[in-house]
Nucleic acid binder design. Structure first.
Lengths: 130, 130
DNA sequence: GATAAGGGTTCCAGTCACTGGAAGGTCAAG
DNA sequence: CTTGACCTTCCAGTGACTGGAACCCTTATC
């Protein structure tokens, strides 16, 4: 299978698939003409990667998850640890963003948003504590 | 004032302050010896920038906010628009992360996390719909 | 006067995960 | 034979820094 078909099937840009080969996540074969020749297993890996990336796992975490996926003797505890760590990061990020949203939301509600210069948003940025 | 003192007062790394000069956000003077010479106005700008960055505004948004801050004839509507747009992005990001958290949280709760290979997390990554 | 510590300076490279684009090879259809 | 859609590699750019090398300036101490 050529890269275009794989891209469609895996829902990833061809560029991204080439990049994943570059960094050693996949190892497609090559046809005589130099084209990448993907097997079903490669497509499955790419779907896996796309899904893991969509859940926000870093490339390194994806690499680890892929290795575990291919390891019949894995302990699910190892997978769970990666997922739990990542979940904690997501939750921290959500908390950060919620703080931003709350602060910014309050400021936006206080701002008249008219043609006058007076602006609580700028005031707060200049002197957050007052 | 030298960069070290400014860094302390503004709560930004000296490297970041140099970078902000590089990209034209600030224009400190120079001493005879080549050292940057910061005025109070520079420090205020840097505090402003640090605060705006902490609220997640991009550098370009910071640049626009800074320009509005310095413009006595600004309309608060312009500030409000930037903030509202950014708020929408934050909310979208929060929604994305919450989806990730929900999906991942469910999977983590289903995973035994023991020394056996069976793992709902990997299963879901391989075939999300089943 | 030499030296060391603790500032400061510039410039280059690396981060992360792609993405865009140039320049060129391959293949099937008309 | 040409057109167009594929494919290839390689290089550069993204955002917002961050690390490090190599070097200069100032002050204090021996």
């Amino acid at each position: 299978m050529n890269i275009g078909d794989v891209a469609t099937r895996a829902g990833l840009p061809a560029k991204t698939i080439r990049y994943y080969e570059d960094i050693g996540l996949i190892r497609p074969l090559r046809d005589q003409n130099g084209y990448r020749a993907f097997r079903e297993a490669d497509v499955h890996k790419l779907v896996f990667l796309g899904r893991a990336r969509a859940l926000g796992f870093s490339i390194d975490e994806c690499r680890a998850l892929l290795a575990l996926w291919e390891d019949r003797d894995r302990a699910s505890a190892d997978v769970r640890r990666i997922a739990t760590d990542h979940l904690a990061q997501i939750e921290a990020k959500i908390a950060d963003l919620q703080d931003m949203r709350d602060t910014l939301g309050t400021l936006v509600r206080k701002c008249a948003g008219d043609d006058r210069p007076d602006c609580p948003i700028l005031k707060s940025l200049a002197a957050p504590d007052q």
